[in-house]
Design a protein around this nucleic acid. Sequence first.
DNA 1: ATATTAATTTAACGAACGTTCATTTAATTA
DNA 2: TAATTAAATGAACGTTCGTTAAATTAATAT
Lengths: 208, 208
Amino acid sequence: MARIAGSDGEVTRSEIRKVSLALFAQCGYAAVSMRQIASQVGVQASAIYQYYPNKQQILVSLLQNHMDGLLKACHKELTTSDPVERLEQFARFHIRYNINRPDEVFLSYMELRSLEPEGFATIAALRSKYETILKSILRDGDKSGVMKVDDPHVSAMAILAMLTGVNTWYRSGGRLSQKKIENIYASMVLKSQGIVTDTADKEEVIHV
Amino acid sequence: MARIAGSDGEVTRSEIRKVSLALFAQCGYAAVSMRQIASQVGVQASAIYQYYPNKQQILVSLLQNHMDGLLKACHKELTTSDPVERLEQFARFHIRYNINRPDEVFLSYMELRSLEPEGFATIAALRSKYETILKSILRDGDKSGVMKVDDPHVSAMAILAMLTGVNTWYRSGGRLSQKKIENIYASMVLKSQGIVTDTADKEEVIHV
DNA sequence: ATATTAATTTAACGAACGTTCATTTAATTA
DNA sequence: TAATTAAATGAACGTTCGTTAAATTAATAT
């Protein structure tokens, strides 16, 4: 047998992406074989090479795609110039965007080590771009006195780790709604940088 | 050749542990071969089987060892019963203990997926034990009104992710001392749960 | 000095790996 | 309808994988 009735390159390509993403996230890049991917797609391993030159490029493409989408969506989301509001927008965006893409996020944070130098440089640069967005917000907020940021770099790393960590425990259909989770994390992020905003239980910070 | 002059089982065993830990953390469990480990130890791959029945048991043993040490050290560190002080002790301990064990921590968080069911259950139980320590502190603090904990489980996960994240960026010999980093993280953790403690710039929270 | 135990080697097993290549069939174009 | 292009197959390549077995030598105990 060779070409199969009804076969479509675009469909197969997207199936390869879908299956690779799930398998890489679940088992790790190195532990997944081309035959394993092919089997779940419903083709032979050799068919994958019609779409990707090698296994490594599947990973690079998945990561590139995710980071591009993340950056684009983030820029669209940050609409205000006020640092505090902007920090809240960022926190909420990060939770909202990542909570529904657990596999992409996991890959992005865990499989950088599986990238060869060229791909690594590309993806690391995109990640750095994203981190810089948050650092700028923190620097602005600290400078204008509305936040208490000990160290913008450390704070940014801490906030990102905290937010991204939601994927280690969240499973859809759980006890808490996504909106509720977003609220909790946004509140913790703001508080962690010395901002108090709970409207339900309003407080005021006064120097004594 | 066979047995080598001066060879010592205890030395070889600990070399295997050391090398495996570094390689698993750097490349991922699945990407590391027995021959690769053996080569760095300075023996043939078959020699490893004198010490571990298979590759999987090396990983299990490393993770088991790390979690045991973590739990033991943590219990020793938490000396006070005051929830706020206890939370600070926990945060500082977690940073201090983990920052010097980046490979173990990375493995513990990333290679649970590489464990077969039995080993997974063992390690997951130990991790859960550790998480429960933090959750209890948060519950106590919230109940007694000295903290504002939206949800103890979410807060615990957020705090752990934030603290553990230090290993994604910290490299020894960097700009900040370990003590300074500990201070920054401890402060963020406390603030994130509605506690204000900065002694240098004292404030008071007043309900309006 | 001899027997035993500890530590390692070399050689080999079958299985799986990523990848290439020639071939085959379906769909599209001329 | 014929020629071309798209999408897949199946077989094979050399390599590496985890693991086992038998042999060999060093250290220790008798």
